[in-house]
Design a protein around this nucleic acid. Structure first.
Lengths: 165, 165
DNA sequence: CACCGCATGTAACGTGTTACATGATTCA
DNA sequence: TGAATCATGTAACACGTTACATGCGGTG
């Protein structure tokens, strides 16, 4: 529910229209997760359906402006206040893959670990390089989040390889 | 696509029926991501639709057994051979939240970080405790993956808090 | 004029979740 | 007998992605 809550959070800063929301979302997150414009409109429709936002009149340039409702403001506050729990996260595809490779499939586990390690290292180099050109603190922190995760993945892969012996 | 590929990987070990697939999936992953039984059947239907598995005759106990096809075997091999890339992963809800909290919303970023940190620490304690009772190496590695991720999250949160000053 | 960027949407599709319905077997 | 477990499925729904269609305005 990152998109839904993200757009809602942006709306709490003031009325916004679709294109504007996508631009602000991508600016804030440094384009780490590009947001399809179609998704913005369907999400806005659902926010309105659920009483968290209302579609107001068109502005001077004829854009369709949405505004947050009281319920939407409360929901956004609730989102910021409640931590992201373990159950909220999707299945970790890599962990699933390794677990299945380990338990009696004919797969060469070491090869899987090696391939993943090389790929994750390349990712980390890329992220580190991209961080040099970033001035916005929010964007830098998003990049840092990905870097920290990639580091943890490398550590885990090495840990897996040690366990194989 | 963890479920789809996970079930496919299990089928490469031999013909299986729905309940059996769920049991083996949860055993391999240590129950970290419980798998709804309904999802197993819909996924099996899609695997058959896509030519990756076929529904064979019922076994002696009247169970509906599925078997992997050549195409399915190839797809499973491709899955194991290709690393999980950055674009494959879903949006990190926590990073999105922090990024939006930082960029000019009226939110107390420090409070968000503190709440998340406490929650993630509790998660880590729970995972560490649960690891004591685990003997299966695959299950232990899945738990380790979550522990490593939680550690990285704590480090990142501390990094965020330092950046706030 | 053609093309591009802005702006709004819709349709089709895939994955995943939950809830519900059904029947057989086993066990207290 | 009644409850739990095994086993198979369907229906409704939510979220997200992609592709497509439309219209406006500016620019080469």
């Amino acid at each position: 529910m990152s998109i839904r809550h993200g757009l809602l959070a942006l709306l709490t800063r003031g009325p916004r229209y679709g294109y504007q929301l996508r631009a602000e979302f991508e600016t804030a997150t440094g384009g780490a997760w590009p947001l399809n414009i179609g998704q913005v409109y369907t999400t806005l429709g659902r926010l309105e359906r659920d009483g968290l936002a209302v579609r107001g009149a068109e502005d001077a340039e004829g854009r369709h402006v949405y505004a947050v409702t009281d319920a939407g403001r409360a929901e956004a506050a609730r989102w910021f206040a409640s931590p992201v729990g373990r159950a909220d996260r999707p299945r970790d595809e890599l962990a699933v893959k390794l677990a299945l490779a380990l338990t009696g499939s004919g797969v060469d586990v070491r090869a899987v670990v090696q391939a993943q390690r090389a790929s994750t290292l390349a990712t980390m180099r890329d992220l580190t390089r991209r961080k040099l050109g970033v001035a916005e603190p929010a964007q830098a922190l998003v990049l840092d989040a990905q870097i920290f995760q990639a580091e943890a993945e490398i550590r885990w892969l090495d840990h897996c390889e040690r366990s194989l012996r």
